[in-house]
Write a protein that binds this DNA or RNA. Structure first.
Length: 888
RNA sequence: GGGCGGAUAGCUCAGUUGGGAGAGCAUCGGCCUUACAAGCCGGGGGUCACAGGUUCGAAUCCUGUUCCGCCUACCA
């Protein structure tokens, strides 16, 4: 017979083929016609500057599993894809390109720069999408969106104007985080605090009108140039005498007051705090309370301002050194201590950020946060696993206003205009041409753009067509589930809740599945700087996409980070190959199979058993997928496919497919085999889409893609405990015989016979009915069944218990074949184990409390166990005794 | 400082209302048994971090301790 499949599965050969096929057939496209129940997921939009990393790979594999499963289950499944314009990140990329050409954005100008970014997006922005396709993602590409496309930009504008009109967006002077390199404000979340080794400098501020000085401690001496006070705790006795004093700011000689503020911690440093309202969050608050002026000592480029006097124009870090030198010279630097503290860095470029007072746009989040908190509390949005709820509530209740303006060019430009004549601010849906107050046409648009997360916050409804009233929006909003890692829970998820609830009056998604982070084999977070990045594409090339996907799902245990282990991926690569070869075997035996032929042969016990087990597996797999226990779903399918279907079922049915079988037997066996394999392929398809599709098309009677074949559902009528018990006995007997052979070092070629003794009719008859399988799978030449009799002493012996009652003695006469001492050792090992278990059971049953308080079924089970152990141990003991006599 | 998670076989990890400790890999022994050596068969290996408590019964629930990891925070 011609080879139906190659001997080894070659992923590269077929992956592209099937992806193109799926796309060409339009199988990813949601109908949105209301004919089927909806199921929708919006993708966390990857940055257009992005390349597929492990986090993407895991996140999108899990989404694809869910969406493929739901699609097969008959839902109108929409996986809404798209990309994020990633303001700062993208602008940085294009600016770097310009730099290489000796240009910068200011020379080029705003409009030309923006079209340059669009051009870059056109040429290089699609990489991540190609990589998602490589991963097999079944996104509805016909609906792909981009946060800067026309529709989404309209949504952004609409939301901005609405919130502004409601007074929920305002512009104000406020202290924000400023990145001197990116030249923009950053939201609190965009600042990463990294522990940094620095120094704590103790600086003396001389008193005016009296002797002495007050010493303050700081990590940033250059900011003293912006100091407008020194604060001490009102309770701090050490400074009681100085209340109301005036101090002389070192170097600048400016006079500043000593004030009292309860926020100062007397325990830290000297208990005296220099107050720099323009460059410190804490100090800003103090200044607000105490009506202190703010002096801006640093400018937007991180250079010292005019207020810094002779230090004007110096870089902040150069200035720090200079000031220290001058302080030393003036003998005002008391001491310097090494000090490690958290320093804020720009999450995009790693530059040390500078807190700075600035005029920015804010979203007032308090009123938006409350409905989001309520939605989670009331269970209208479920966070899975629930453990995240606590963090969520903590964050949401302490949330500060969201700074949404960014001083960059790439993004949604804030739709606000200022009349140059009367100063009126105009925020409208359509670009204004003249001032509604004074009528002049001299209007200037805000130059800032919006934080990228502003547009992503609208993603669940903006991608569905809002503000238009589209069929998609009506059908798919609220979406079913959001799949994401916890690192963007606050950046993105919380904001989607706020915006969705406010604009749509309805939650954006009903469930949020929060998966783990992928770490390197040592448990470290993967990062460019550590150089420990593992490239998912490389793993796909090496092991195949299906194996890679299956690995990720098998790793995805709830609430625990993933340590990437290549050994395990290799193991799942082998599993994929196993599926391939089981299918290969099946197809090799289907040459003459006619699916249309009638089959009235009843199911054999083996078939009843495998079908019964299959129903159980279907139930478990679906249950695990519905609770996002991807690892358990994968595990159940792995175990069943490999260790039940391949290891046992296929071996059992080989004779029924061989020459000895009648045509109708053979046909019947083929029919059931195809049925089971078909179910396995469909169950596995969401995890390993490519290989299952390839095999699916080779199955007899193949019709269309496996993607739209029904996902298996359990058939209770096939549940068959009797067949499972019966096959349990058969398999245990085979294992027992194999064990005796292996342990006794009986060569596989050696011919052995087995005698089966038992007083119990039922297990005896069962095994007798399966003697062909026993012969074949345990490599036994001759097998005899004896209700009673005297087994030979020169033999190995095993006792197999039948779960429905009774037992079998399997005796392998081995005169001349074995060393009896060896058999005695084997028996003793087993008896030891049994004795220990028996002792345990005895202790339990001797315990009055156990008997009276434990549930009756537990007690009953313990009794049965005790009896079985006693019986088995007794039989082995007498065998062992006879062996001893024989040796003696 | 606050919060969260983890500690189970040599390694990576499961263990779903508390009721006979599991998988994969590794290891040891034996097999080219006509789907698969990326395979088949069999074996060995664990005081479930430590100390208490609740319970007839604890890897599982409670308290405390130790050691890791993460998130968060304005102690300058």
């Amino acid at each position: 017979m011609a080879e139906v499949l190659d001997k080894v599965y070659d992923p590269q050969r077929i992956e592209n083929k099937w992806y193109e096929y799926w796309e060409a057939q339009g199988l990813f496209t949601a109908q949105a016609d209301g004919q089927k129940p909806p199921f929708a997921i919006v993708i966390p939009p990857p940055n257009i500057t992005g390349f597929l990393h492990m986090g993407h790979a895991l996140n999108n594999t899990l989404q694809d599993i869910l969406i493929r499963c739901k699609r097969m289950q008959g839902f109108d499944a929409l996986w809404m894809p798209g990309t994020d314009h990633a303001g700062i990140a993208t602008q940085n990329v294009v600016e770097r390109m310009l730099a290489q050409e000796g240009q910068d954005r200011h020379k080029v100008g705003r409009e030309a720069f923006i079209s340059r970014v669009w051009q870059w997006k056109q040429e290089s922005g699609g990489t991540i999408i190609k990589q998602l396709k490589r991963l097999g993602c079944s996104c509805d590409w016909s609906r792909e969106r981009f946060t800067m496309d026309e529709g989404l930009s309209r949504a952004v504008r609409e939301v901005f104007v609405c919130l502004y009109e409601e007074g929920l967006i305002y512009k104000g002077d406020y202290i924000i985080n400023w990145c001197p390199r990116c030249q923009t404000a950053l939201a609190d979340l965009e600042v990463e605090h990294e522990p940094t080794d620095g120094y704590l400098y103790y600086i003396k501020y001389p008193l005016v009108d009296q002797e002495g000085s007050i010493t303050v401690a700081t990590t940033r001496p250059e900011t003293l140039l912006g100091d407008t006070a020194v604060a001490v705790n009102p309770e701090d006795l050490r400074y009681l005498a100085y209340h109301g004093a005036t101090l002389r700011l070192p170097v600048l000689e400016r006079k500043i007051p000593l004030i009292m503020d309860p926020h100062v911690n007397p325990e830290f440093g000297t208990g005296a705090l220099k107050v720099t309202p323009a460059h410190d969050f804490h100090d800003f608050d103090i200044a607000q309370r105490q009506n202190l002026p703010a002096v801006k000592a640093l400018d937007e480029e991180g250079l010292m301002t005019e207020a810094a006097g002779k230090y004007q124009g110096l870089d902040r870090f150069v200035c720090r050194e200079k000031i220290l030198k001058d302080l030393k010279h003036d003998e005002l630097l008391e001491k310097t201590e090494p000090y490690s503290h958290a320093v804020g860095h720009c999450y995009r470029c790693r530059t040390v950020v500078e807190p700075m007072i600035s005029k920015q746009w804010f979203v007032s989040v308090q009123t938006l946060a409350e409905p989001a908190i309520a939605a989670v509390q009331e269970g209208r949005i479920k966070l899975i696993p629930e453990t995240w709820e606590k963090s969520f509530f903590d964050w949401m209740t302490n949330i500060r206003d969201w700074c949404i303006s960014r001083q960059i060019w790439w993004g949604h430009r804030i739709p606000a205009w200022t009349c140059q004549e009367c100063g009126r601010v105009i925020v409208t849906r359509e670009d204004p041409t003249s001032c509604p107050t004074c009528g002049v046409a001299d209007l200037k648009q805000e130059t800032d753009v919006l934080d990228t997360w502003f547009s992503s916050a609208l993603w669940p409804f903006s991608t569905l067509g809002w503000p238009e009233d589209t069929p998609e929006l009506r059908l798919f909003y609220p979406t079913s589930v959001l799949v994401t890692a916890f690192d963007i829970l606050f950046f993105w998820v919380a904001r989607m809740m706020m915006m969705g609830l406010h604009m749509m009056k309805e939650v954006p998604f009903r469930e949020v599945y929060i998966h783990a982070l992928v770490r390197d084999p040592e448990g470290q977070k993967m990062s460019k700087s550590k150089g420990n990045i593992i490239d998912p594409l490389e793993l796909m090339n090496r092991y195949g996409t299906d194996a890679f996907r299956f690995s990720l799902s098998a790793f995805a245990a709830m609430g625990r980070d993933i340590r990437l282990s290549e050994d395990r991926i290799l193991g799942y690569r082998n599993f994929v190959n196993k599926v391939w070869n089981a299918s290969r075997f099946t197809l090799m035996n289907l040459g003459d199979y006619d699916p249309a032929r009638e089959d009235d042969t009843p199911l054999s016990v083996v078939e009843s058993w495998i079908l019964s087990r299959l129903q159980q597996v279907k139930t478990e797999a679906v249950r695990h997928l519905e609770t996002y226990a991807f690892d358990q779903a994968a595990h159940v399918l792995y175990q069943f496919t490999w260790h039940e279907f391949c290891d046992w079922y296929l071996e059992f049915i080989k004779p029924q497919l061989g020459n000895g079988a009648t045509p109708s037997e053979r046909h019947h066996t083929q029919r059931v085999l195809v049925e089971v394999l078909s179910a396995i392929l469909r169950l596995l398809h969401p995890f390993m889409p490519f290989i299952t599709e390839e095999i699916w098309h080779k199955l007899p009677g193949a019709r269309g893609s496996i993607m739209v074949a029904p996902y298996p559902t359990p058939d209770q009528a096939l549940h068959n405990p009797a067949a499972e018990a019966e096959m349990g006995l058969v398999m245990e007997s085979i294992v027992a015989i194999r064990n005796m052979r292996a342990e006794m070092n009986v060569s596989p070629a050696a011919s052995v016979s087995v005698l089966v003794f038992s007083q119990d009719r039922s297990p005896m008859e069962i095994l007798e009915g399966h003697q062909q399988s026993v012969r074949l799978l345990a490599r036994v030449q001759d097998i005899q069944f004896q209700p009673a009799g005297n087994p030979p002493a020169a033999a190995a012996k095993s006792v197999v218990m039948y779960s429905q009652g009774g037992s079998l003695d399997l005796v392998m006469p081995l005169a001349g074949l074995i060393d009896f001492k060896e058999e005695a050792r084997r028996i003793n090992r087993e008896m030891d184990k049994l004795s220990r278990e028996l002792a345990q059971a005895q202790k339990q049953l001797a315990n009055e409390d156990f008997l009276s308080k434990a549930p009756p079924e537990v007690v009953e089970r313990e009794r049965e166990r005790h009896q079985a152990l006693t019986e088995k141990l007794g039989k082995l003991k007498s065998h062992e005794k006879r062996l001893r006599e024989l040796v003696a």
